[in-house]
Amino acid sequence: METLLSSLRITVATMVICVGGYTGVVWAVGQAAAPDLADGSLITTPDGKVIGSRQVAQAFTRPQYFWPRPSAVSYNAAGAGGSNKSPTSMDLTDRAKETIAAYGATPENPLPAELAAASGAGLDPHITERAARYQAERIAQTRNVSVDRVNQLIDRSAFSPGGVLTPDRLVNVLEMNLALDNDAAP
């Protein structure tokens, strides 16, 4: 009985402090210091409509856009997930064949692996610089601009996520596509 009583008292105390107090403090700091980040890094149009989250991949299938990595959940940000297929699975081979067909990759112009492999959450917002350049020609053709111009955009956007620790530079697909639209508008 004594045990139960003490357990209950400690339950209440930990709930109040660790759930109420702790969450409240972190929330307050987040909302005060970086409200944009704390709310999910949303990108809005000037008129306030939400386009997406900077952190979250969205589906791009039109040829004038950079395409993100494949998503096992069709870029569902309310139910994310990976393929969970073994790297030895034929299912992956079949899926990759579709991807190859979409990009029109050939043995002479092979597809970078990151464009064939699905990400863990299916929401990876990045592709590598190399994967972006791989798509530059298609985008340039569709948008009727020079490949150089697309490449210049890639040059401007690419970053190393971990400095010297990550040799492969990345670009954010949604931001690049926004830039393409803004750039191509006039």
Partner: peptide, 17 residues
């Protein structure tokens, strides 16, 4: 398949890490 694989197995991984 015609895929360049020079960075190991990427299925299920996030590039930013």
């Amino acid at each position: 398949l015609p895929i360049t694989q020079d960075v190991g197995n990427l299925e299920g991984k996030e590039l930013r890490f």
